[in-house]
């Protein structure tokens, strides 16, 4: 086995093990949350936390003004593939929490 194949195998192995582990955790989490109706509620707050976390920690709503969040959300829509509907819902949440 040459070095390229060996490296690729190591990486695929790590990804597979971690992905398998994460999927199991996710399944367990889902089972736990089914019992809690409040936890299954989705809204701007949940989208804000979930969408931001795909790349970085979520910043607190009060760090920027409504107008600044509007600019930031447009930047995120262009830069980070946030959908138009997500962008609107998150902005509404940020405004309401401000």
């Amino acid at each position: 086995m040459n070095r390229h194949a060996k490296n690729m195998t190591v990486m695929l192995g790590i990804v597979s093990v971690v992905a398998w582990f994460c999927m199991n955790v996710m399944a367990a989490d889902k089972t736990a949350k089914t019992a809690s109706p409040a936890a299954s509620a989705k809204g701007g707050a949940r989208l804000w936390s979930q969408t931001c976390a795909r790349c970085h920690n979520s910043r607190s709503p009060e760090t920027l003004s409504d107008q600044q969040w509007k600019t930031v959300m447009r930047h995120m829509r262009v830069h980070a593939y946030v959908t138009a509907a997500e962008s609107r819902a998150i902005l509404e949440f940020l405004k309401s929490a401000n």
Binding site: V18, A19, C22, V25, D29, A32, S49, A53, R54
Partner: peptide
Amino acid sequence: LSYVRNSDI
């Protein structure tokens, strides 16, 4: 591939 999850477990 990216996977980010905040987990209770």
